[in-house]
């Protein structure tokens, strides 16, 4: 690990995860001022209504509901299975895909529309070539 990398602290897993390494990480959407569509990541124009230069950043909620999912039993070499790939609609807009954790990977246990919360943690120990660690987001059943 280089000195420089160590000094910057953990990095965000995606560029729309803000505040990595602070006490207050959050997911950031970009909302269209014309039609209200919410996107993940920065953009200039709206692909929903075509409006130009109407995007402004918005802090996404940590509360949401499970929309759909799959339980992944076979993945690429080196990826630990099983895991639940979940699609979650966040309160106030924005749909995010991520791992649903702290619940059995069993369709009997997983219910559509179950309330979930967004939590932030180390990215399963994964590091990049420079030895940087990362902060990721996860979903878990709402407490």
């Amino acid at each position: 690990m280089s000195e420089e990398a160590a000094a910057t602290g953990p990095l965000p897993v995606v560029d729309w995860l803000k505040g990595a390494g602070t006490e207050d990480p959050y997911l950031e959407g970009h909302k269209c001022g014309e039609c209200g569509a919410v996107f993940l990541g920065q953009r200039e124009n709206c692909s929903s209504c075509g409006a130009r230069d109407q995007m402004s950043p918005t802090r996404l909620s940590t509360k949401g509901k499970l929309y759909s999912y799959s339980i992944v039993h076979r993945s690429f070499p080196g990826i630990e299975v099983p895991y639940i790939s979940a699609i979650v609609d966040l309160e106030g807009g924005g749909t995010v895909k991520g791992n649903l954790i702290n619940i059995d990977p069993d369709p009997e246990k997983i219910e559509f529309d179950m309330p979930v919360e967004v939590v932030f943690d180390d990215a399963l120990g994964r590091k990049d070539r420079d030895g940087n660690s990362y902060v990721s987001y996860f979903f878990q059943p709402a407490s």
Binding site: S75, G98, A123, R126, D128
Partner: peptide
């Protein structure tokens, strides 16, 4: 760039993507 996202931010494998589309029909 960065780290592999598969199995970290859900799955982008085709079987999972189409499983999720099927589960939307289930719901």
């Amino acid at each position: 760039t960065g780290i592999p996202k598969e199995g970290l931010l859900g799955s982008g494998t085709m079987p999972a993507v189409f499983a999720e589309a099927g589960m939307e029909h289930s719901r």
